[in-house]
Design a protein around this nucleic acid. Sequence first.
DNA 1: CTAGGGTTAG
Length: 844
Amino acid sequence: MAATLNPSPVVFATPTSTPLTTQHEAKTMSKDSPPLVSFKHCTGLDELKQLHGQILKQGLNHNHSYISKVISTCAQMGTVESLTYAQKAFDLYKNDNETNGTLFMYNSLIRGYSCIGFAVEAILLYVELVGFGILPDKYTFPFVLSACTKSSAYREGIQLHGAIIKLGFENDVFAENSLIHFYGERGEIVDGRKVFEEMPERNVVSWTSLICAYARRDLPKEAVDLFFKMVEEGTKPNSVTMVCVISACAKLQELELGQRVCAYIGDLGMKVNTLMVNALVDMYMKCGAVDTAKQLFDECDDRNLVLCNTIMSNYVRLGLAREALAILDEMLLHGPRPDRVSMLSAISASAQLGDLLWGKWCHGYVLRNRLEGWDAICNAMIDMYMKCGKQEMASRIFNHISNKTVVSWNSLIAGLIKNGDVDSAREVFGEMPERDHVSWNTMLGALTQENMFEEAMELFRVMQREGIKADRVTMVGVASSCGYLGALDLAKWIYIYIEKNKILCDIQLATALVDMFARCGDPQSAMQVFNGMEKRDVSAWTAAIGAMAMEGNGERAVELFNKMLQQGVKPDGIVFVGVLTACSHNGLVEQGWHIFRSMKEIYGISPQIVHYGCMVDLLGRAGLLGEALDLIKSMPMEPNDVIWGSLLAACRKHQNVDMAAYAAERIIELAPEKTGVHVLLSNIYASAGKWTNVAKVRLHMKEKGVRKVPGSSSIEVNGKIHEFTSGNESHPEMNDISLMLHEMNCRLRDAGYIPDITNVLLDVDEQEKEYLLSHHSEKLALAFGLINTSQRMPIRVVKNLRMCSDCHSFAKLVSKIYDREIVVRDNNRFHFFKQGFCSCSDFW
DNA sequence: CTAGGGTTAG
């Protein structure tokens, strides 16, 4: 627009007509001329159009006072229609008078356009105004800057900053405040701060704008600090300030701080308006004070839509979907009428519950009220139908979306994964037009969840190659995969990577790191991360307790558990599993019973079947087989195959063949597909020398097509993970490994090692048994480790099954004869071998 | 004239 305009300055300072109050002006008006006050009583656009018509009819279009009134009144109505009309009136005025508008007209229009979000039009009008050589005034800058802010017109904003300085408005509080807001919304907070610092005088809006900027840029701490500084320096906060600072407290999730800030509301005798109630309810909910929030909500007379939406969305976020839907019910009965934001929460709530009825009802409401045009609603519905298991319905909605965003694709992928269709998810991932970090994180999470850890790490490497920035969520997935791989070098690299890239280490990520180090057999690092955490929730404690359990340090695990209770962290069912497992690894029968009983008696948590499983394991390992069986019989629920499996394992350790057979039969009844049972059962018979029974089990396995899960061990050397399976000789360095194994066997035999062939299931001759035994996967990995790692390095092996007792003795001796620390993680815990001893003291 | 609340996927 501006480019085609004549840039020569048109002096507009001379009015084309004198003010209305003068005699001259009065004469030009007919008797029926509408008085200017009639604009004040103008209620709608139609009325205004009539007034404008009268003015035109009376030939008053040259009178800028009238036309200015028309334009400004129109613009203030703030609708697209009214602005279009204002623009028309403006153009007509300019045509009839062969001149430009007045500054006041420009200001009115710019403000109006900015208000309805037509920022480009507002900026173009400014350009036009300057093009005509009209000098902007102090009213112009706030309007046009707010337009720049809304349309992210960065270059224009910067130019305006220049103009403000050039035209001598840099000491104008309003212009400067608008600049602070502009920079703040752009994320250029340093520039905003600079403007703020250089202001000769500031008012409450200057402070508030900067506080708001910090709060929005995820620097809530700075926002709150600035608030205190503001009060200290004697500027009284108003309700807007309070809304901003309370939202900062919500982000910090610090209830006490929030309450301290709120104290100013009462101290200053501030009236609490709806926006403040809303901010308060939001803050309390984000800080975990759900009851306080609900109370405030209930006491609020003005249940407006936003307030309802705030409480609903928070309920959904907290996983309280039922409560969210209760609010919706309330709204449907007594108002306010749910809008698309309410429905977004309602659809998410239905998704969370997997409640198809509610979901379908929401879908219907959306259609009846024509809310479906909004992307977010459709995306939420994809998620909802997927979570309700209605893949087809979800896909249908996806296909009907005309404007598919990356979120639509991500919802589809996540949904496919939830329905167990990882292959399709991978396919869609490959097809989608653009991928954002959520897409990558979703896939990474899926691979981790599906135990495809190496694939997950590979995907992470692809991310690196493609320059996708990893964030917290990425690293949680990566850390978790690494933990399962048990690759300590990789773990250390990940830890450094997070520090180097300044990835925010929140509770979840720190917890993932604790777990990762624990699974990689480095409990020291795990505890170091844990001790460095600022806040610890029950999951964090669970990870630390798990680290101790895996190390076999039951006493320390129980200690940690007690410390957690002391610090007032409420235990959940999961942490009890952790601590009871720790007890069972160390035979802490008394403490285990004590903790188990406290579950219900003190914490009101009814033990679930897993907790009984832990106890059966604890009693069984300790040799209290009768007590274990009694517990199983006293359980309030039917024992499952896992429970009997624990008992079976215990029977094997303590050589109770009869009870073992009983337990095994129960398992085969409950879960005939469980291959491990057959193997274990034959092992029991084998170790008792009952070869007829072994043959029977083997026959049964053959008939059912059950195959033993092959033992596999992996070892990380120079960042690469080498995997060995029992008896598989495909590794490229197999020759060296065989030679090494032979040498090891010789040296060990000289030291008095006798292979414990009771672990060999097959009924073959002694020599062959020895051969099979000497090729157990962990032995291959050990030999490989001895060849390929330096003397001072511990050898770390990860095994998928439980270590057999022969390999256990073997590793003990190797650790002594080769003077090497050996760390083996089996599917249950760690074994640290050193100088002929194992950390488990042979109790595992 | 400038500043303020609720919004889907991992």
